[in-house]
Every structure is written in structure tokens, then in C-alpha cells.
Write a protein that binds this DNA or RNA. Sequence first.
DNA 1: AAATTATTTCTAGAAATATAGAATTAACAG
DNA 2: CTGTTAATTCTATATTTCTAGAAATAATTT
Lengths: 99, 99
Amino acid sequence: MNLDDMAARLAELGHPTRLQILKHLMKAGYSGTPVGDIQAALDVPGSTLSHHLSRMMKVGLIRQERESRTLYCFSNYDAINEVINYLMDECCVNDERCG
Amino acid sequence: MNLDDMAARLAELGHPTRLQILKHLMKAGYSGTPVGDIQAALDVPGSTLSHHLSRMMKVGLIRQERESRTLYCFSNYDAINEVINYLMDECCVNDERCG
DNA sequence: AAATTATTTCTAGAAATATAGAATTAACAG
DNA sequence: CTGTTAATTCTATATTTCTAGAAATAATTT
């Protein structure tokens, strides 16, 4: 995963509503959360929510699964771990002061 | 640290040039890097770089220390750890399926 | 087939961000 | 005080993103 893709993911995390969405889905874990429940929890217009979800989908931060009329959302733990690892790896590799 | 501040930090990380800056500073560790060296490494106009650095400063992602004419930049490890911890904590707390 | 529920796409205006040249400030050297 | 190096601020333009109402689609129920 390259720098541009990482930046894209971080940019999507960098919006209050989307960060709230992610936290909600992180807490929900593998049970997931219907779009409608997210909307109720965050009190945001459907069209706005849909816009944010679509952006998060595009960079792989979340995943969706339809079950009849209800669309369940899940946070993508792998994607989030990739971001975290990317931030931390190579820490201090060019620092002569560090062992 | 609240959600809006976290989102602000993540948004600053979510730009290719700024993410590159951060990676550069992460690698440099406690030795830091002069603004001019960053500019040379990333090949970006001074005014553009300055704009990005100022944004990163504002949310506490980096720190600067002047030494005569040279301005050294450092990544703020605490700030980055706060972001990482924020993303991970409360994971699955509402998931009945998880122990 | 009509109605209902769940969600998305379309649309458009407002706001924020990105970019980089030119002018400016800061710190020092001669 | 003039010149030089290091970096920022000013300015303007281009681009992207945000927001939410209205219209449309999807899946189901009656």
C-alpha cells in the first residue's frame, strides 16, 4: 500500500462525521450496524450520511453487506491496522542518536 | 482529546505531501530536520511547504525549534500515539459476539 | 400492482483547501 | 548598513469537499 492510498484513507478519517461513523463501527465489531442505525445515532441527513459512507467504502475503510432491505456496515480492521502500522514503522531509522 | 481535534489531526495526515513530511520527520527522530532539508527531499516550493508545516503545527503533529537561521522540525510522537490509541480503543465494546 | 421502508443518486450553492509566485521577515556575516 | 541565507506571509486562482433537499432505486409487504 503506497503513500497516496494511505493519505486517502487518513483524509477520510479526518472528518468529524466520518470519524464518528468509524468509531461507531469499531465499537460494533463483527456484528455491524445498519445504515439507518448510524443515521439515528449521529442524527445526520440520509443523503449526507450516504455521501460519507461512499467515500469510506472507496478507500476500503468500511465494508457493507445487504440483508434484505437493510444495509449493514462494518469497519475494515485490516485497513485500519495498515494505516496504524504505516504511521509507526520506520520510526527513527535515520536517527543517529537512537540505537 | 475530543473527536473534533482527532479528526483535525487525521485530516492533516490525509494529504500526500503532509504525510510524506511526517514520515520524513518520524524517520529523523529526535535529531529533527531543517525546513530546507525537507524542501530538498520532497521537491516542493517553499511557500507550499510552509503552508503545510503551519497546518501540521496548528494541530500539534509537529514541533519546531529555531537554531540561528535554521528552523528544525520534529514529529510529535505523543500526538501520533494519541491518534493511534484513539482509533483502536473501544474496539468491539458493543459487540455481543466478542468476549 | 400499490404502498412502505431503506438507502442512494442528483443537484447546486457554500465553504474550505491547495498551489505557487512575489514580497517580506529573521538571523547572521562582512 | 549591505548582502546573503532561511523561511514565512501575502495574494490570487483553481480545485475539492460539504451539505442537504428532491428525486430515484431497491427490497419487501399487502
